[in-house]
Amino acid sequence: MKHFRLVASALTVLFLAACASSGAYKAADGSKYGYTDQRVETGRYRVTYTARSAEVAENGALRRAAEITLRDNYSYFTVVSRDLDRRRTGGGSSVGIGGSTGSRRTGVGVGINVPLGGGGEDVTVRMEISLGKGDKPQGPQSYDARSVLDNLRG
Score class of each variant (00 low, 15 high):
74 Y>I: 10
147 S>F: 08
97 I>E: 08
64 R>G: 11
34 G>K: 04
113 N>F: 04
13 V>A: 15
122 D>W: 00
6 L>A: 07
126 R>G: 03
11 L>H: 03
142 S>Y: 01
121 E>R: 06
36 T>H: 02
51 A>G: 13
117 G>T: 14
41 E>D: 15
64 R>T: 07
91 G>Y: 13
132 G>E: 00
126 R>N: 08
32 K>Q: 08
41 E>S: 15
26 K>R: 14
106 T>P: 04
136 K>N: 01
54 A>R: 13
85 D>H: 04
21 S>R: 00
33 Y>L: 06
48 T>E: 03
115 P>N: 03
111 G>D: 01
53 S>W: 10
1 M>A: 08
114 V>C: 11
48 T>D: 00
150 D>P: 05
56 V>L: 15
28 A>Y: 05
104 R>V: 05
26 K>V: 09
18 A>H: 01
24 A>F: 12
106 T>M: 02
120 G>K: 00
104 R>G: 10
47 V>E: 00
32 K>G: 04
75 S>T: 09
144 D>W: 10
54 A>I: 02
88 R>F: 03
37 D>M: 14
16 L>R: 02
141 Q>C: 12
106 T>C: 01
127 M>V: 11
142 S>W: 05
31 S>D: 15
133 K>C: 03
151 N>P: 03
138 Q>A: 07
2 K>F: 00
78 T>A: 11
83 D>S: 15
52 R>L: 07
123 V>K: 12
98 G>M: 05
101 T>D: 03
87 R>T: 13
81 S>V: 02
139 G>I: 00
46 R>F: 00
75 S>C: 05
133 K>Q: 15
142 S>E: 01
78 T>C: 12
86 R>G: 00
51 A>S: 11
72 D>T: 12
150 D>K: 11
100 S>P: 07
130 S>H: 07
30 G>T: 04
115 P>H: 11
88 R>D: 12
8 A>F: 08
125 V>Y: 06
22 S>T: 15
136 K>P: 01
106 T>H: 07
45 Y>L: 03
3 H>S: 13
88 R>C: 08
29 D>Q: 13
131 L>G: 11
32 K>L: 09
146 R>A: 04
70 L>R: 12
26 K>I: 11
25 Y>K: 10
80 V>S: 12
66 A>D: 14
103 S>R: 02
95 V>Y: 10
27 A>D: 07
17 A>T: 14
81 S>F: 04
31 S>E: 05
61 A>C: 06
32 K>E: 13
144 D>P: 09
1 M>S: 06
83 D>C: 07
56 V>N: 10
110 V>I: 06
71 R>C: 05
120 G>M: 01
146 R>H: 00
42 T>E: 15
63 R>S: 08
115 P>K: 06
95 V>R: 08
95 V>P: 00
111 G>P: 00
70 L>H: 05
23 G>E: 12
91 G>T: 05
22 S>N: 11
147 S>G: 11
82 R>E: 12
100 S>V: 02
49 Y>L: 09
80 V>H: 05
33 Y>S: 05
78 T>M: 01
135 D>G: 09
139 G>W: 12
102 G>Q: 04
